[in-house]
Simulated scan of single mutants.
Amino acid sequence: MDTQEYIASGILELYVYGILNESETKEISDLAKTNSEIKNEIIAIEKAIVNLSSSFSPQVSAEVFEKIRAKLELKHTKVIEMKPKSNISQYLGWAASFALLLGAGYLYTQLNESNSSIKTIETEKSVVEKQVLDLELKNKETATALSVIRDTKNTVITLGGQAIAPESFAKIYWNQEAQTVYVDASGLPEPPEGKVYQIWSLKLKPALTPTSIGLLENFKENGQKIFAVSGTTGAEAFGITLEPTGGSASPTMEQLYTLGKV
C-alpha cells in the first residue's frame, strides 16, 4: 500500500499507543527513518494525544477508533506485548496531576472568596443593624424631647450661667402634678473626663437645702441633651454643678454652672 493508505489504516495510532507486536513495531520504526511523511504523522499523533490529555477530553475519530478496535479484537486471544515507543502514559499522568492541582487550587480560591464574601456581608449587616439602632434611639430621644416641651403641665425654669461658666444655660421642665423632672442641658459644655453634671433641687428657706435628683450621665451620647431625673416636691430653685464621676453627697459650689429660681 502507498503512504497515504498506510497512514489511513490506523496502524500508526496503534504504534504510538505501543500495542503492536515487536516485528510490527520495528517495521514502522524503520519505515519512519526513511519516510518523512510517516515520521511526521507519528509526531502529529503523539502531539495530538498530549494536547488532548491536557484537557481531559481525549477523542479519536470514529474511523480510526473502529480500526483500533478491530485490530484489538483480532488479537484478543493473544498476549499483547506493550512496547510503548513514547512517554505518552507518563505525559498523561503528569497532565492529570497538574489538572488535579489546578482544580484543587481553583476550589480553594473559590472557597476563600466565598468565606471573604460571607464575612463582608456579615460586617455590612452589623453596620446596618447599628445604624438602625442608632436611628431608633435618636427617634426615641426626639419624641421624648418633643413630648416634654409640648407638655402644658410642665413648669419651665430657666437656669442661667454662673461665675465659672457665664455662657452656660439650661432648662428644667417640672411637672409638679406627676412629680417628673426633665433637664434640657443643651447649653452646657461637654464635661471633661472623670466629671459629670449633677442636678440639685434647692429649698432656700429657712436655709439653703440641696437635694440631688440625678446625674446627666452619657452626656456625649445623648444627641438631644434631654435627661430625665428624679422627681421632686417643694423645690424653690434648681442648680447644676460639675462633680466627680458618680456624683457627690453635697454640691461643689465652686463648680456651680447654672442656677435658677422657680
Rank of each mutant, 00 (worst) to 15 (best):
Gly194Glu: 01
Gly160Asp: 13
Ala62Leu: 04
Gln176Thr: 14
Ile172Arg: 01
Ile11Tyr: 01
Val229Ile: 11
Ala170Asn: 11
Ile213Glu: 08
Ile43Thr: 13
Pro244Asp: 07
Glu136Leu: 04
Ala207Ser: 07
Glu73Cys: 05
Gly103Trp: 10
Leu101Phe: 09
Glu24Asn: 07
Lys78Cys: 15
Thr258Val: 11
Ala170Pro: 05
Glu41Ile: 00
Val127Ser: 04
Ile68Leu: 07
Glu190Ser: 02
Ile157Glu: 02
Glu136Phe: 04
Ala70Cys: 04
Ser89Glu: 14
Thr34Tyr: 13
Gly234Ala: 10
Glu129Thr: 00
Ile7Leu: 00
Phe56Val: 14
Leu12Met: 02
Gln162Tyr: 09
Tyr15Glu: 06
Leu133Pro: 01
Ala96His: 09
Pro191Gly: 01
Ser117Thr: 04
Pro166Arg: 00
Gly160Phe: 13
Leu102Asp: 11
Gly247Met: 11
Phe238Ile: 10
Gln131Lys: 03
Val16Ser: 04
Gln179Val: 08
Asn218Phe: 12
Ser23His: 12
Glu73His: 08
Gly187Ala: 12
Val229Ser: 07
Lys138Arg: 14
Glu5Val: 07
Ala99His: 14
Ser248Val: 08
Ile68Tyr: 03
Ile38His: 00
Leu12Asp: 01
Tyr257Phe: 03
Ser201Thr: 08
Lys138Glu: 15
Asp2Phe: 02
Lys153Arg: 06
Leu259Glu: 09
Ile11Ser: 04
Tyr182Ile: 14
Tyr182Gln: 15
Ile213Thr: 08
Phe56Met: 12
Ser53Ala: 12
Ser97Ala: 15
Pro84Phe: 07
Tyr6His: 09
Asp30Cys: 09
Ala104Ser: 15
Lys78Tyr: 15
Ser186Met: 04
Thr180Phe: 08
Thr144Phe: 07
Gly187Cys: 11
Ile7Lys: 00
Ser29Phe: 04
Gln176Phe: 10
Ile149Arg: 02
Thr3Ile: 03
Lys39Arg: 11
Gly239Trp: 03
Thr34Met: 13
Met82His: 12
Leu204Pro: 04
Ala249Phe: 10
Glu217Pro: 07
Ala96Trp: 08
Ser86Arg: 14
Ala32Cys: 03
Ser89Asn: 12
Val183Lys: 10
Ser97Met: 09
Glu193Asp: 10
Glu193Tyr: 11
Ala165Asn: 02
Tyr91Cys: 03
Ser36Ile: 05
Glu46Tyr: 07
Ser53Asn: 08
Gly246Gln: 10
Ala8Arg: 06
Gln90Gly: 13
Trp174Tyr: 10
Thr233Asp: 09
Thr209Phe: 10
Ser97Cys: 12
Asn87Lys: 11
Thr3Tyr: 02
Ala143Tyr: 09
Lys71Asp: 05
Lys171Glu: 01
Val183Ile: 15
